[in-house]
Amino acid sequence: MLIAALAGIGAGAAHALAGPDHVLSLAPLAVGRRDAWRVGLRWGLGHGAGTLCWAVALLASISATRLQGMDRWAEAAAGLALVAMGIVGLRRRRAHEPGPAPRGIFVVGLVHGASGGSALLLLLPAVVAGSGIHTANYLAGFVAGSTVAMTALTASLARLSMAGGRSARVMARAGRMASLASLALGAFWIGRGVVG
């Protein structure tokens, strides 16, 4: 049981930190914020909830062909979330204040968690775990690992952006660049998901 939970934690953390969409979704809101860890926590909890939706779908229907077709549209949905976060980041930078974390950050994490095809592969051990308790431990570990990793990532991005007394001008540029990168990746994923 402990091994299943530890495997889930490792897989969840690796998944959260390896995806450029995760970093670019959070970077526009993390730069220059003292409470960026809260953004990461909300996003991570939403991502965990979305991943659990995938797990339930996977456990209910092991038909890989149906899931394979859904992956294209799921990627487009994640692209939309990236575009939305890029727009939110640019609006916040235009106002020259990071402000409070947007209330919709949980929903953005949910969309990312429910739309990631790579998370689907990492959930396969839960499907073949053999027992309900091992499956539950793996999934709980996956959610915890990805949430803690994203919380730490956003806190680190914020700390890095404020290190050494960087000027407000530098932080604004970094925030704009992260927002534009989020927009670009999101637009690419939308195009790839729709066109194929």
Rank of each mutant, 00 (worst) to 15 (best):
I3R: 05
A5Q: 04
A5V: 07
A11P: 12
A13S: 12
A13L: 11
A16M: 10
A18W: 07
P20M: 15
P20C: 08
D21N: 12
L24N: 06
A30V: 11
V31S: 10
R33V: 14
R34M: 05
D35R: 14
D35A: 15
A36T: 07
W37S: 12
W37F: 14
R38G: 06
L41Y: 03
R42N: 11
W43H: 10
W43R: 05
L45D: 00
H47S: 05
H47I: 12
G48Y: 03
G48V: 09
G50H: 03
G50V: 04
L52Y: 08
W54E: 02
W54M: 02
W54S: 06
V56R: 07
A57W: 09
A57M: 14
A57R: 04
L59A: 14
A60H: 13
S61L: 14
A64E: 06
T65L: 10
M70N: 01
D71G: 10
D71A: 15
R72K: 10
W73Q: 10
W73R: 04
A74N: 07
A76F: 03
A76Q: 08
A78R: 00
A78P: 03
L80D: 12
L80A: 15
A84Q: 12
A84T: 07
M85N: 06
I87V: 15
I87C: 00
G89Q: 01
G89W: 03
R93M: 13
E97N: 14
E97K: 13
P98D: 02
A101T: 07
R103A: 11
R103L: 08
G104Q: 05
V107P: 09
G109L: 04
L110Y: 07
L110W: 05
V111C: 06
V111Y: 00
A114V: 02
S115Y: 05
G117T: 05
S118E: 06
L120W: 13
L121E: 07
L121N: 02
P125C: 00
P125E: 00
A126G: 11
V127T: 11
G132S: 08
G132T: 09
I133D: 05
H134A: 15
H134Y: 11
F142G: 03
V143G: 12
G145A: 08
A149N: 11
A152V: 13
L157G: 05
S161Y: 10
G165P: 04
S167C: 02
R169D: 07
V170R: 08
M171Y: 01
A172K: 07
A174I: 09
A178P: 02
S179I: 13
L180E: 03
A181H: 09
A181F: 13
S182I: 01
L183V: 09
A184E: 08
A187L: 15
W189V: 11
R192T: 06
